[in-house]
């Protein structure tokens, strides 16, 4: 200790920033995709059509029983093959790690957002569905105009908490050598032999961002409670 090189951090800031751009992009994509498809999956789980509900449950339970790292490897391996199959190409499509990561994370997060949204939908009192039916809404209209808006309002803090978890999980793209924030720092660390500085910096940045976001979510939670 004693020769902590702050300069290496300063010099690599632009490169690290690019890495953070990827991290945030991946987080955002997986969040949007996760919430959108997660909602559909939640509806599938709650539906009365047994096969649909079973498949949806199966998918959710599968994603929750295996490590994210394994899911990343699965799709890194699978996506080029699927691409080959769809396009009929002679070889697996050379789809880069960055893109397969988008698929992996989105499909993984769908399962988790699904559970949150499902709980949210189930927490809406039965009377609301009754009232929605009574005014003549179809199933999708009930969902769209009555149930989902209320469910989402209640669920926003928990959805955001899951997003913070997702934000931290994106660091695992390291295993397929993607240059996200951690990946960028790791590259600099190895090139300049400055592991202590770079990894400490990464830890601090993640801490500050996650902590700040979780405080925000907590404030949101109290506000919603007061308003609701």
């Amino acid at each position: 200790m004693g020769d902590f090189d702050f300069d290496v951090i300063r010099r690599s800031l632009p490169y690290l920033f690019k890495g953070m751009e990827y991290t945030l992009g991946l987080t955002f994509t997986a969040m949007i995709g996760g919430i959108f498809f997660g909602t559909l999956l939640a509806l599938a789980r709650l539906s009365a059509i047994a096969p649909l509900s079973l498949v949806a449950s199966g998918y959710v339970n599968l994603m929750r029983s295996i490590p994210l790292v394994l899911v990343i490897f699965w799709f890194y391996f699978l996506v080029p093959l699927v691409g080959q199959w769809i396009t009929g190409a002679p070889q697996p499509l050379p789809i880069g790690a960055e893109k397969t990561a988008l698929v992996s994370f989105t499909l993984f997060e769908i399962a988790f957002y699904c559970e949150i949204i499902r709980a949210g939908i189930q927490s809406i009192p039965q009377g609301q569905i009754g009232a929605a039916k009574a005014v003549g809404f179809t199933y999708f209209q009930q969902m769209r105009y009555v149930i989902l808006p209320q469910a989402f309002q209640n669920m926003i803090p928990i959805l955001l908490s899951q997003t913070i978890v997702l934000f931290q999980d994106t660091s695992l793209v390291y295993v397929i050598s993607v240059t996200d924030f951690l990946g960028a720092a790791a590259k600099v660390a190895q090139r300049d032999s400055r592991l202590v500085e770079m990894y400490s910096f990464v830890a601090v940045i993640y801490f500050v961002m996650s902590f700040a976001l979780s405080r925000l979510v907590r404030r949101l939670q109290t506000n919603i409670r007061i308003a609701g």
């Binding site: 660091s171 951690l182 990894y199």
Partner: peptide, 12 residues
């Protein structure tokens, strides 16, 4: 321990 990703903690 909750606000730093596990992989980063392992590296540390």
């Amino acid at each position: 321990f909750r606000n730093v990703p596990l992989i980063v903690q392992m590296f540390l």
